[in-house]
Amino acid sequence: MTSLDGGGRAARRAAAIFLAPGLLLITITFLLPAAASFLLSLTDFDIYAVASPADARVVWLRNYATLAQAPLFWIALRNTLYFVLVGGPISVVVSLGVAVLLDSELVRWRGLFRTIYFAPVVTTLVAVAVVWKYLYDPRFGLLNAGLHALGLPPVDWLGSAVWAMPSIILMTVWKGFGYNMIIFMAGLQAVSPDLYDAARVDGAGAWQRFWHVTLPTLAPTFLFVSITTMIGFLQLFSEPYIMTQGGPLHATLSVVLYMFNQGFESWHIGQGAAVAFVLFGLTLIGALIQLRLRPERTEGGA
């Protein structure tokens, strides 16, 4: 009983007591509600049912059928995939590029640059979304002033259906590139200097060394970064909520914003839960595809 390895009743009871607060909280406030979301999506739960849940009726897949015929849902889905498939890779490539630059042995004040690049990551998303809304102002914004100084025509950033999503992507890259940069920098530390020297002896140039030595070693890091980035990008909400309210012409309406509008604004809760479940499905499918695509020699994750 005094040994950790005993696995006796006392150890089991102690383990249960230590696990209970955390696991109960996660189960009650997260895992069970997430599962309940699926059941909810099979009902016509609405504003009246919030007062008396017993009034909700089971409608089976009708919410999903309604979604399939809702043009706004497809617009939200298309916009979100645009954001994930265009914004995600841009963000990851920028992070990797900056990490490689900072990893160069020629860099002085590495810590200072790292801190500066990371600063936008810790800022409050709502606050910087408000700031960028003014930076994007077509008449008085700093961005168009910059374009003017370069002799370029002004852009109606958030006001045009074509530019609104690229504007949100630009802001997101600014806000987030420092995070993955840190992860890539840690990954780059694992690249053996001997490999670089061997490649150099073989006459490989800087680009070839990056392509044949750095990138293969970074493969596990790359997989981790691309999965977590995709999961995060699928959850786009605050930026359009603050900057565009999903407009103009629904060009920045995201899946989560659509879920929020359906569930918490119109109180079509069953419908909103169906949207939430679609989000879960997208996350799972995206993660599985990336795990499937990973290179052969990487180690399995946890």
Binding site: S37, Q235, F237, V256, A276, L279, F280
Partner: peptide, 18 residues
Amino acid sequence: VLLGLFIPPQVAMLPLFI
């Protein structure tokens, strides 16, 4: 428990609110 990392927090929000 780790599988929870693949569940977006928004999925739980409507039931949690109720």
